[in-house]
Simulated assay, not measured.
Amino acid sequence: MQHDYPDPVEMDAMGFAVMVDDRLGHLAVTHDGTITWDQLQAIKNLIWGVDARAIEVYPVQPSVVNNTQMRHLWRLGKDDFAPDLLGRYEAKQTLEQRFRSAWPDP
């Protein structure tokens, strides 16, 4: 794929090799198989800030590419949906509507 923007930036964050593509909102972290959720959260905070939201994607099995010890985070935009486990935001999208209907208020 050809693109007209700079290549991802490679750096070290908390002892992990990290590639950051801010245009795509993609963060790739190479690890030894023992990285924790807290470490990924800290790296996300370090790179994009504590107010940034990010997700990992678990694709359908035929689309899985798992040939190295690497975790991928995708930064969400301000209006992108992610399940709101604390119930702070109003529904805007179909997935969120399904999520809310699955967990109705008592």
Rank of each mutant, 00 (worst) to 15 (best):
43 I>H: 01
52 A>H: 04
25 G>H: 09
43 I>L: 08
35 I>W: 04
17 A>Q: 14
33 G>F: 13
23 R>E: 15
36 T>K: 07
28 A>I: 05
27 L>E: 01
8 P>R: 04
17 A>K: 14
37 W>Q: 13
50 V>F: 02
43 I>K: 02
23 R>Q: 11
23 R>W: 08
53 R>Y: 05
20 V>R: 04
13 A>G: 06
46 L>W: 01
39 Q>K: 10
46 L>V: 05
21 D>I: 03
16 F>Y: 15
30 T>N: 12
27 L>H: 02
50 V>L: 03
20 V>K: 01
26 H>M: 12
13 A>N: 01
18 V>L: 08
50 V>M: 06
8 P>N: 11
47 I>W: 01
38 D>T: 11
41 Q>W: 02
10 E>N: 12
52 A>N: 07
31 H>P: 02
11 M>S: 14
15 G>M: 07
19 M>E: 15
18 V>R: 04
21 D>T: 06
41 Q>S: 13
29 V>K: 01
35 I>G: 06
47 I>Y: 01
32 D>C: 09
26 H>C: 11
29 V>M: 08
46 L>S: 12
48 W>A: 07
3 H>F: 12
17 A>M: 08
41 Q>A: 15
32 D>A: 15
44 K>Y: 03
7 D>E: 15
23 R>A: 11
10 E>P: 00
46 L>N: 04
45 N>M: 04
5 Y>F: 14
28 A>Y: 02
51 D>G: 06
35 I>M: 11
46 L>Q: 14
42 A>Q: 10
6 P>F: 09
11 M>W: 00
26 H>Q: 14
34 T>A: 14
23 R>T: 13
47 I>S: 01
12 D>K: 01
37 W>H: 12
9 V>F: 03
53 R>V: 07
16 F>E: 10
20 V>Q: 00
54 A>R: 02
45 N>G: 13
9 V>D: 06
16 F>W: 10
47 I>E: 06
14 M>I: 09
32 D>F: 06
13 A>R: 11
26 H>I: 12
25 G>T: 06
23 R>Y: 10
47 I>Q: 04
49 G>I: 02
31 H>M: 10
46 L>D: 11
13 A>E: 13
8 P>H: 10
